[in-house]
Simulated scan of single mutants.
Amino acid sequence: MCGLLFAAFVFYTDDYVIAGVLPEIAADLGVSESVAGQLVTAFSVAVAVAAPVAAVALARWPRRAVFGIALTAFTAANIVAAFSGSFPLLLGLRVIAALAAAMATPALFAVAAALAPQERQGRFIATVALGVTGSIAIGVPLGTWIGGQWGWRATFAAMAVGGLVALVSLVAALPPTPPGPVVALREQVRVLTSKPILLGLTANALTITGSMMLLTYLAPYLTDLANAGTETRAVIFAASGFAAMAGIWLGGLATDRWGPDRTLIGGIGVFAAVMAVFTILWPMRPVSMWVVAPLAIVWGGAAFWNSPAIQARLLRLAGPVGGQALALNTSFTYIGVAVGGGLGGVLLSVFTSAALPPVSGVLGLLALGVFGLAAGAARRGAPAAR
């Protein structure tokens, strides 16, 4: 399980860490920061498009082979990136790294679920998901620090080392796991486009959009709400990141104890409540950080609490094509991230940062309603492949 967790940590750090060294990349390669930002966009779009395709195409491959090929390509792409001298080459290498992540990431969660006893599936999924939040709380700051000390190329070199360590740990220590069963493509499409699954995926995208919209623009929001300086904002970001790690683990425990549906109701409900409190506090600004910080920590935990429940729900509904369902979930997650950043930017430019929490809260409530429809559809008919 540690190898699966570390691989998730490496893949997601590689996606997010670019933001920390963006100015240095832009200056060194002679492009604007807005152009350099497309390195992040290209990675996210490539993963969103490629993940479900790879999951269907590689469903019968042994998992060790999937991880071996993906991590080898990922490591090679980052090694070449560390020596890249042109922006177009670096952009192409980011796409290669993203395709490797799209190939491996859904399989990481599918293998975790396959290794788990039924009553502990939520905890096993949460263990791998800790790599996602750990990349935000630990990986990105560490990668940014490395870039500050030795240059942005050292950040890519560090990612290559991480990919190599993940490769060795998975290939050497991963227990044998059988490939997925043979399911006709038409049957896969039937399951993956069924109402319980599509509605659940849409609800997940809504929750991610609401969460990432505020996370992307948390710095200006904290400045406007509480006059938070750079050091204070850094502490809040770190605390929220560690709260997210705790939230994922506790969400896994709750999924095993209460089931996915009840866990989702609790997590989204808390998220919407925190957004409502932020909205009420706006007219009282500047608000003390002693009030804002605990709310930000609860928000961080609630925002990531839902991940194990969402994935456990998809695995149970999709049955033999659970891996493909998780790949679609990866796509919808990246779509939510992209839409959240775009929508937040529009709100920030047209209104002020005051608009972020109420809109995020409304999106959370919409997600709760869509999850309710998904649960109702699941009760009326099981979509699992035959």
Rank of each mutant, 00 (worst) to 15 (best):
L198I: 14
L347K: 04
A382Q: 11
F109R: 02
A338Q: 01
I96H: 00
F124D: 12
M212Y: 15
A50S: 04
A160V: 09
I265W: 03
T330Q: 15
F371W: 11
F9M: 13
I79N: 02
L314W: 06
A82R: 07
S349T: 15
A184W: 11
Y217N: 06
G241P: 10
V17N: 04
P196F: 07
A338P: 00
F242S: 05
G229V: 08
P286M: 07
Y221Q: 08
V337A: 02
P220N: 08
F11W: 09
T75S: 14
A238I: 08
T144A: 05
T230D: 13
P52I: 02
T193Y: 08
P62L: 13
A302F: 12
A172E: 08
P196T: 05
A296K: 00
I335T: 14
A338E: 01
R285C: 06
G85W: 07
L108Q: 02
V165F: 03
G269L: 02
P286G: 02
F9H: 13
G68D: 10
P320M: 02
A98C: 10
V45I: 15
V132S: 07
W152Y: 15
A36D: 06
G340T: 04
S44G: 05
S211A: 09
S288M: 07
G369T: 15
S84Y: 11
S360A: 15
F242E: 08
T75Q: 13
A303C: 05
Q311K: 02
E33I: 15
V346S: 05
G251T: 07
G37P: 09
F304V: 07
A303N: 13
A70C: 07
I146A: 01
G147E: 10
A46R: 09
N204Y: 13
P52M: 00
P23L: 06
T72G: 13
G344Y: 04
R316C: 03
F109I: 14
L366K: 11
G319L: 09
G122W: 03
R257W: 06
F109H: 11
F87M: 00
S44K: 12
G369S: 12
T105S: 06
L167R: 03
A137R: 00
I96C: 03
M1Q: 08
A65N: 08
A382G: 00
G269R: 01
V140A: 03
A338I: 15
E24M: 00
A50M: 05
V17D: 05
G162S: 00
G361D: 09
V161L: 15
L264S: 03
I248K: 01
M284W: 05
R233N: 08
S194M: 14
A8C: 12
I18Y: 05
S360G: 11
S288A: 10
I236Y: 01
T230L: 12
G344I: 13
V80N: 04
A244W: 11
E231H: 13
L185V: 11
S288K: 02
A219T: 12
P196H: 02
F371K: 01
